[in-house]
Design a protein around this nucleic acid. Structure first.
Length: 577
DNA sequence: GCCGTTTTCGGCCCGACTGTTTTCAGTCG
């Protein structure tokens, strides 16, 4: 049977939930969750790692977990898991998806009221059959019903690209309503870490008086419902069903609180364990000695410094080795948006965009870029207004004429050429030869199997004119899964043929993902951060690509479009000569 | 179940908010 780390991950997560419902040792539960996290973010092949005996070296996977993984890989089954499933029906685990219902409540509901599904739960609450249970009052009933509604309407995470504008709006409104009470204000949580999707939004404020802020927050125009309101924390539900929390702390604690609420949870646990080993304690108010003396907390830098660590950028705080790297002075100098010198994947109204070349150029110069590449779709992509060979060559001629008018800026000619089903390209080599940059992309056959897709993409990468592989997995967050492609092989060929992999900055793509970006870097594969913009504002999406690249530990040297125009032209034409 | 800058045993992050338990358990992040 073929290795499938996805299946192992899912089984470990389910086991963690089932053990928690059984009331097992919480640390044992955590061990399963931790193991699932580790496996989920593995870039190598699980079967290979297992064969090479490298699994036990991965922090979080001990002897017990490795044995279970081995059993699963060899037999496709896991007796311990099957036992657990027999004990607790699947519907009981489903109850955990409802806010307010945790493992203890699920156990109580199942054992005392025979609740085996969310539907059961809803019926029981509505007919007040649970009121005899300990801890179940009218309020709890209301909360559970609200939780069920929330689960059904809005449990999907929203895109970073949607959450960021929303949080900016909210911060603006808070400043309008209560500016004199705000000392410092910042988003925290997964939004600040730049995760591709956001579950809920955290905002942190430092202030000497929390009351007026809580008033302002719970009366924002976006509030549908106030879920909680206290001295230090309030929670609201917005009209679009998104939960937003506001935390208020004193100015002396802002750094500690920002560190704490930015997470991730796993990163914080790692930091706190380090603190304990040094006889210190970290909480959201500061760093404290055993005698309770505060030794830091006003700024995040201070918190890390108390642990003898340099500042760790939020994008790295996922407990994927960043604390060790910080300790050993191996943190990367993460790429910054100002280092981007141009955009290498753009569409104009000649294909399916809405801007002209001149308009894109104007915007690019506003952004202090030195170049951009016009990369329309190719013949076969009818829905994308693909250009015929003649139309493409006419555009090339037009661009060359434009370029003759300026010295320190350049519009590069290019194409986003379709990879056809046999792995050949949608334009002849004679046409591709005329272009400055050829970006190859897959737009059809997403349902084909791994072997077929991988083979055609790799064949396309052998074409001597191809420089970039666009959106390498084709995923659309919340809409379409990545197609089955063996990225491991793609990276191998990319390294060998010096093909650059795109980090597509469209918020619903963000493709490559952070995990694979880091793996590509590890193997010495270069990348391009590009917006795939179809209109003028689209060029601003570059920031989402940069955040994702930072999450993949990239430095400017890993990214081709940090090169100056002169250096870019050198590498572009080196391959052909 | 994992793990070791006092440890191969005995710990394992920490606090706010809520509801209903008159002193705290459950959930969440």
């Amino acid at each position: 049977m073929r290795a499938d780390s996805g299946k192992v991950t899912q089984i470990f997560r389910e086991m963690a939930d089932l053990l928690a419902i059984k009331g097992e040792n919480p640390f044992r539960v955590r061990a399963y969750e931790k193991a699932a996290d580790v496996l989920e973010h593995l870039s190598g092949d699980l079967q290979d790692l297992h064969n090479e005996g490298k699994l036990e070296k991965i922090p979080g996977l001990g002897k017990g977990m490795c044995e279970k993984i081995s059993t699963l890989l060899n037999t496709g089954r896991l007796p311990a898991y099957e036992e657990l499933k027999k004990e607790i029906p699947a519907g009981v685990r489903e109850l955990l998806l409802i806010p307010e219902v945790g493992p203890k409540t699920a156990k109580l509901l199942y054992e005392e009221a025979k609740v085996k599904s969310i539907e059961d739960l809803e019926k029981c609450v509505k007919s007040h059959k649970l009121q005899h249970l300990p801890g179940m009052g009218t309020k709890t009933e209301e909360n559970i019903l609200r939780g069920i509604r929330f689960y059904r309407t809005s449990r999907a995470r929203i895109l970073l690209g949607k959450a960021l504008p929303l949080v900016e709006e909210v911060i603006g409104e808070l400043k309008e309503k209560a500016s004199s009470w705000i000392e410092r204000i910042s988003p925290a949580g997964s939004l600040r870490r730049g995760r591709e999707t956001i579950g809920d939004i955290d905002i942190l404020v430092s202030s000497s008086s929390s009351h007026p802020l809580m008033e302002a927050f719970t009366s924002l125009s976006c509030v549908r419902e106030v879920l909680a309101k206290g001295e230090t924390k309030s929670s609201i539900l917005t009209h679009q069903g998104l939960q937003m929390d506001l935390r208020v702390v004193s100015p002396d604690s802002f750094g500690a609180a920002l560190q704490y609420f930015t997470g991730s949870k796993a990163h914080n646990i790692s930091l706190r364990e380090r603190a304990i080993r040094r006889g210190l304690k970290i909480n959201e108010y500061g760093v404290f000695t055993q005698d309770g003396e505060e030794i830091g907390g006003r700024d995040e830098e201070e918190v890390y410094a108390c642990l003898d660590l340099p500042f760790i950028p939020p994008e790295l705080r996922e407990d994927r080795g960043e604390v060790d790297a910080a300790r050993e002075g191996r943190l990367p100098q993460l790429i910054r948006e100002e280092e981007i010198k141009g955009d290498l994947h753009l569409h104009t109204r000649a294909s399916d965009g809405s801007a002209s070349i001149e308009e894109l150029m104007e915007k690019a110069q506003e952004k202090r870029y030195q170049y951009l590449a016009i990369t329309e779709h190719s013949v076969s992509l009818k829905v994308g207004g693909g250009l015929s060979e003649e139309a493409l060559l006419a555009e090339v001629k037009e661009i060359r004429q434009m370029n003759s008018h300026f010295e320190d800026f350049r519009v590069l000619t290019g194409t986003e050429v379709d990879i056809k089903k046999d792995g050949t390209l949608d334009y002849s080599d004679e046409v591709l030869r005329e272009l400055d940059i050829v970006v190859a992309a897959l737009h059809t056959g997403f349902k084909q199997d791994r072997e077929i897709i991988t083979t055609k993409v790799i064949k396309a990468m052998q074409n001597p004119f191809v420089r970039v592989l666009a959106h390498p997995t084709g995923r659309l967050l919340g809409e379409r899964d990545p197609y089955a492609i063996d990225l491991d092989k793609v990276l191998e060929v990319a390294k060998e043929k010096d093909i650059w992999l795109e980090i597509n900055a469209q918020p619903e793509r963000l493709d490559l993902t952070d995990i694979w970006i880091r793996e590509a870097k590890r193997r010495g594969v270069k990348m391009v951060i590009a917006t795939d913009a179809h209109n003028i504002k689209g060029l601003d999406l570059i920031s989402f690509g940069v955040i994702t690249a930072r999450r993949g530990w990239l430095e400017s040297a890993d990214v081709i479009n940090t090169l100056s125009l002169k250096d870019l032209l050198k590498v572009l034409f080196k391959k052909r000569s």
